[in-house]
Design a protein around this nucleic acid. Structure first.
Lengths: 253, 253
DNA sequence: GTAATGGGTTGACTCAGGTCAAACGACAGT
DNA sequence: ACTGTCGTTTGACCTGAGTCAACCCATTAC
């Protein structure tokens, strides 16, 4: 069953698998979530002129990998990604899940090499934004500069949230926080707050939340027994949003 | 006993407790670690003109608190800080420890309100950098813009490191990573890599590393038994840096 | 001096989440 | 329809870190 999608209008990957499409912020329905937020028509055209490429990434493919030279940041036009870092010994930590309208690649600015891998969890499209040209343009357009800084700062704040989650929440709290976060982000994109498909495996959820896949599975089952959610494979229906919020609010002992 | 200090030249807090001092990057010995990195003399003077205030913060005082309007970012001139977020129920998570040459307040850019508390762990001095004026100036000075972006990105990468630590490392690995990180940062500031004073309590270390204070204490004791370090209250001597590195490298089972 | 206070250490016990193993279900390829 | 693969669920058991409690050691207040 397809996800309750609004923007998904069949993108027919089979026909033109690696096509390069002209990108244009000005007629992108994500512009209010993405980089161009707040720009005038004129300014948006200037941003358009810089974002020349939109590319398709197939499910399972990497957008970039650890160690690759940094050149672009990427705006997700459609689809779903994870970022992860892997330690020498094979363990890996998912550091985030990204969806349409969000930016990828900010980690690379620091050393001009990417410090994590970005993997498409479904067939996706991304706009390539040449970073150094973005810097130039944001020296000219104050609104763009400000918004870019806010996006970077928001990422820092988000990371602090994950640290809080990993540092001091129990299983139930982590899962509840995770589901509520997804719900809220789907909502912001015009999807249902209560019903969606997970794009990631239990193992990936576990890696993100610092748990083992079995623990994630058990938590889902428990939430289902308690009538908070209905899970069927990757399809999730949240039945009791306040109930999930309460799990996070109440100090559990 | 005083910390093995180089820059510490008695700052005599008692005499002028809240004095406001003229700040000047151009003759600051931290300029190569801090925001002005790579600026020409001329550019540095322009940055100076914007950083008008240097303030003393006493041990235990807050530089800023959650919810306060965001106006400045702060460069630590001397001293030591922690940032933390606290949940409604009283639990709190230390999100970082900051030392001389590092910037504080980047979290506030996103919503124009601070999202964490910044607390001095020892008597400290910070330079106030009016953020919106910094933005203006970085529209004019490309080097400054670039470096500021790198600093923000570095913070994101650092946070990913903490997520890795919290998500998949065991006690020994966390403590080893923590000590090596401090050692390396002290080294970058011209202090001994092997001998320093912790500025934070066991509880604060624990909060940062997602552990309880007893667990931190036990790990220190165990490392001491194994001859890796010598601990005496807050004074740490690292006896075997490769040994600590090995703890992180080897998959422990 | 003595007392009070705030870390820090150590031991005994508990339990949340990890580990290991088996079975199941969905889907893709033949 | 059959098979293989990959993800998911569930159970039984184990263990690493948390909890609780006692005690110690430094520092500061009186």
């Amino acid at each position: 069953m397809p996800p309750p999608s609004k923007a998904a209008k069949d993108t027919s990957f089979k026909e033109t698998p690696f096509a390069v499409i002209k990108a244009a912020c000005s007629n992108c329905n994500l512009r209010e979530l993405c980089l161009p937020l707040g720009l005038s028509d004129d300014e948006m055209t200037r941003l358009d002129s810089l974002i020349s490429v939109r590319k398709r990434i197939k499910r399972g493919d990497c957008l970039y990998r650890v160690g690759e030279p940094f050149e672009y940041i990427y705006a997700i036009r459609s689809g779903f990604f994870k970022t992860d870092v892997l330690l020498e010994d094979g363990r890996d930590q998912v550091t985030g899940f990204q969806m349409a309208g969000e930016l990828l690649g900010l980690d690379g600015i620091s050393t001009e090499r990417h410090t994590c891998n970005s993997v498409a969890l479904e067939d996706s499209e991304v706009c390539h934004i040449p970073f150094f040209r973005l810097e130039s343009l944001s020296r000219e357009i104050q609104t763009l500069q400000r918004h870019f800084h806010k996006i970077m700062s928001r990422e820092i704040v988000r990371d602090h949230g994950v640290m809080t989650l990993l540092g001091m929440m129990c299983v139930e709290e982590r899962i509840a926080a995770f589901l509520l976060n997804l719900s809220q982000r789907f909502t912001a994109r015009g999807f249902s707050p209560a019903e969606f498909n997970l794009r990631m495996t239990r193992e990936e959820i576990g890696s993100y939340l610092g748990l083992k896949l079995e623990t994630v599975s058990r938590a889902f089952s428990r939430f289902q027994e308690e009538g908070l959610i209905a899970v069927q494979q990757r399809h999730i229906r949240i039945l009791d949003i306040p109930g999930l919020q309460q799990i996070m609010a109440k100090r559990n002992h």
